[in-house]
């Protein structure tokens, strides 16, 4: 469904992403892991069009996205969250969702018709997203005044508001407690059950190993392994990449 073909991004001498090829299948939760600086966020930025690749292509359902601007990719069904939360802090929670939902539609629709469904009286699906993210009671609060966990939930809701086919989550559990991690896992499964394919980048190994169908591992920008969680845990190359980076223990625990 989402295919990266020989994808590279070089920043001067740094090969942040270096010839990555992988295919994410419709309806799966795909994990992308790797040590810090291995090119995970850069890969997401290449898929969403924040960066243009040095080489390679990105295709979604056979559509070549590589030359498309970001908003065109959004309307083709690519949505993301950011490793460092990005929201419109001076807009309300509902406005953040409403604008995300309509941002890519409004060019087609006559703007006067928006009079009949203005942001103040958010439509059904925004309400539904607010419920889904447990943010309904906060709908009129400014996004900048939310707690950290609420911001993370709003970010995912914002990504879902554009009605994506594939959702890219860049370390959604960063800064979250173990308990929040459990809730997050449930929410990611629920997103998948809504028919959205998920690419999950995560450091919390328990989370990744627990909910993904398949995993690819990056190291220094290159894909060093791909397979089911069990295959990845048993892969000697992966263990080597994580050795000394503090994650090997977590892997042990996750596989135990």
């Amino acid at each position: 469904m989402l295919t990266l073909e020989n994808l590279s991004k070089h920043f001067g001498g740094v090969r942040a992403v270096d010839g990555v090829t992988l295919t994410i299948r419709e309806g799966e939760i795909f994990g992308l892991i790797g040590p810090n600086g291995s090119g995970k966020s850069t890969t997401v930025n290449l898929i969403t069009g924040l960066y243009t690749p040095t080489t390679g292509t990105v295709t979604l359902d056979g559509w070549d996205l590589t030359a498309m601007p970001q908003h065109a990719r959004t309307s083709r069904g690519v949505a993301r969250t950011f490793q460092n939360i990005r929201l419109f802090g001076n807009l309300t929670v509902a406005q953040n969702l409403w604008v995300a939902q309509n941002g890519h539609e409004q060019r087609r629709e006559h703007f006067l018709s928006r009079w009949f469904k203005p942001g103040g009286e958010h439509g059904a699906s925004v309400d539904e997203l607010l419920q889904f993210s447990r943010l309904y009671s906060k709908r009129d609060v400014l996004a900048g005044n939310l707690s950290f966990g609420e911001m993370r939930r709003l970010e995912m809701a914002r990504a879902l508001a554009s009605n994506p086919r594939v959702l890219l989550l860049d370390e959604p559990a960063a800064g979250a407690s173990q308990e929040d991690g459990q809730l997050l896992a449930e929410r990611i499964r629920a997103v998948r059950d809504r028919g959205v394919t998920v690419l999950l980048i995560e450091h919390m190994m328990e989370l990744v190993m627990g909910i993904t169908d398949r995993i690819a591992v990056l190291n220094f920008g290159q894909k060093i392994a791909e397979g089911t969680p069990r295959e990845i845990q048993d892969d000697p190359q992966v263990r080597a990449a994580y050795l000394g980076s503090g994650h090997d223990e977590k892997m042990e625990r996750a596989s135990a």
């Binding site: 001076n90 807009l91 604008v99 539609e105 009079w115």
Partner: peptide, 21 residues
């Protein structure tokens, strides 16, 4: 008509705004 909200989006985070069309 959410014109002001979009202007605020551009003001706060033009990259994120562009991503949303």
């Amino acid at each position: 008509l959410d014109v002001m909200a979009q202007l605020r989006m551009v003001g706060e985070d033009p990259i994120l705004a562009a991503m949303q069309g």
